[in-house]
Amino acid sequence: MLFDLNAWIGSWPFRSMWDNTAPAMLERMDRHGINWAAVSSLEAIFHRNGQPANEKLAEDVAPYSRRLFPLATINPSYVKWEDDLKYCHEKLNMKGVRLVPQYQGWELKSAMAVKAVQACTERGLLICIPHRLEDPRQAHPIDPGRTVEYDDVVYLLRAVPAAKIVLQNIRVTPAINALLQPDLIDKEWYVDLALTEVHFNQATLSFLDKVGGKHLVFGTHSPHSYAGSALVKLELLPVAGDEKADVCYRHAARLLNVNLMETE
């Protein structure tokens, strides 16, 4: 069983994409043997007022509520964002959020970000933060090409130790050791398999050797990226048994407070 914690629907401004509607995402998941996915709206990143896009996302995935779990995109630099968070959580039953500061002109190392992470954490919501959405080496002239790094997550976890954070699309490098320090190693932080390498990357092997699948989740970055790449890494992942099941779906279900038995 597989739970993809890193999927999107909607239009990406810089290129055309396939499988970016809810029904097409379902077909894509079936093609790849993926049971469930947490999805967020690409439009919600770029619209000044992203809340209508969050609401459209909830509407789009509602017919598939046993398999697609919407994540709200929250922009803490926009007025009354707290209302959006409350509405998405309480009225739309969203289980987590995406933070995408790269395209919204704010920083994770800021009081504003800490306030947003604190608010999400008080609600028990998972916080997903992509390192990047697209390779900055091909950035469109209006794409800032910014990235989120490990030290941003270190900063947030030290400010809000109870936060549940998934850093997505990041390559595992020795910089991940900043998250393995004694005060952070048992916190609820995760990285995914979407864009890192496993066996030909000593940093990943060393990371897995130290903590196994404890801080790893399955994510594909669909439909931006080929889901097949994440599946190959999962197939060859040097963890087994319960730990592999954690990576495949159990971490995701727990982080989102989803009872998978109810989805069957």
């Binding site: 396939w18 864009l195 066996h199 080929y226 097949g228 790449s229 599946l231 190959v232 890494k233």
Partner: peptide
Amino acid sequence: DSTMEGCVGKVIGAR
């Protein structure tokens, strides 16, 4: 070019 699993997966996953 050193993206070994990723590139195998690209072709496996291509339509």
